[in-house]
């Protein structure tokens, strides 16, 4: 892009894509922003009036909001903990040479290809169902009372399902990182008298921080928006025990036909996500520098 001419041509050529992307993002966002200031209920179409910050006031003071906020945080943190710790453990196992390594690696990645709705339904009906689920059968075989996961531990169950889906992703990223660990460094540590455990603490863990950072950043973005798993398993219940912010917005706008309230919730969710993003980048983003 040396000359003025070629630079202008380049701008001209990428402009359709840029404009399309901009519209794609800006239009829905500004419409949501606009709706969030209206008293807009689908049961009374055409009756929209200006509502000021009322929608925000009602959304933020709704008791459901605080439980949704804490559920969101618990969900994200819980899944992150399970996937990072489990991912490191699995990656360490898969890094060992064993017979059938290739097949096992493919199998481990498999859950990532299952759609969230499908996997949640499989978990709900085939594993966690208190009558026909596998866990119930196991419990009965052991002479125990079957546990109704989705009604007695709804959030934990959802964390389990989502963690199962994301574990392969974490494992994969951590495994590649593990494979790039310098072998001579390991051998040097071995000669320096470091036990397997010490080598893990002093070499592997520092080496993995960057990969863990990537896993945490990417997963957080997706985990803030978990929805399908909640919809098909608990519907946010019992009460609001498994409602996260995303699900609360859905419940507001679609179940209550309250477009204004839902939009306000959406904007709040966007702001919260940005706060989390800034927070994360500040805290662990520096690990990504060289």
């Amino acid at each position: 892009m040396a000359t003025q001419h070629s630079r202008t041509a380049a701008r001209l050529m990428i402009s359709p894509a840029v404009i399309l992307l901009l519209l794609w993002m800006i239009v829905p966002l500004s419409m949501t922003l606009y709706f969030s200031f209206l008293r807009y209920n689908l049961l009374m179409p055409g009756m929209e009036t200006w509502a000021g910050f009322d929608n925000y006031y009602y959304f933020l003071t709704d008791p459901a909001f605080f439980s949704a906020l804490s559920n969101t945080i618990i969900l994200v943190v819980g899944v992150l903990l399970i996937t990072v710790i489990g991912g490191v453990a699995l990656a360490l196992l898969l890094d060992q040479p064993f017979w059938g390594q290739g097949v096992v690696r493919v199998l481990v990645i498999a859950p990532f290809f299952v759609m969230p709705t499908v996997s949640a339904l499989v978990w709900k009906n085939m594993f966690m169902n208190p009558v026909n689920g596998m866990f119930a059968h196991i419990a009965k075989a052991l002479g125990l009372q079957p546990f109704d996961f989705l009604s007695h531990a709804p959030l934990a169950s959802i964390i389990l399902i989502v963690a199962w889906q994301w574990l392969p992703f974490a494992t994969l990223i951590l495994l590649t990182a593990l494979q790039s660990l310098d072998r001579e460094q390991q051998e040097a540590a071995e000669m320096d008298g470091a036990s397997v455990f010490a080598r893990f603490i002093y070499l592997t863990v520092p080496h993995l921080t960057r990969a863990v950072t990537v896993v945490v950043l990417i997963q957080t973005i997706f985990l803030l928006g978990v929805f399908a798993e909640i919809l098909v398993t608990t519907n946010g219940g019992p009460g609001t025990a498994s409602t996260n912010i995303t699900y609360l917005v859905y419940a507001q706008s679609l179940l209550n036909y309250d477009v204004g309230g839902g939009s306000a919730g959406g904007i709040v969710a966007v702001i919260l996500a940005n706060i989390v993003a800034i927070f994360l980048m500040r805290m662990i983003g520096k690990n990504l520098d060289a």
Binding site: E184, E187, A189, E190, D192, A194, Y202, L203
Partner: peptide, 28 residues
């Protein structure tokens, strides 16, 4: 290896990249 009482200097140096020079030397 650790029990043989031998020390090795590798071609790639094999220093521990996230430790300071002091920590590297004092690691053993």
């Amino acid at each position: 290896p650790a029990k043989r009482g031998l020390a090795m200097v590798f071609q790639s140096y094999a220093l521990y990249p996230h430790m300071s020079v002091r920590k590297n030397i004092s690691f053993p």
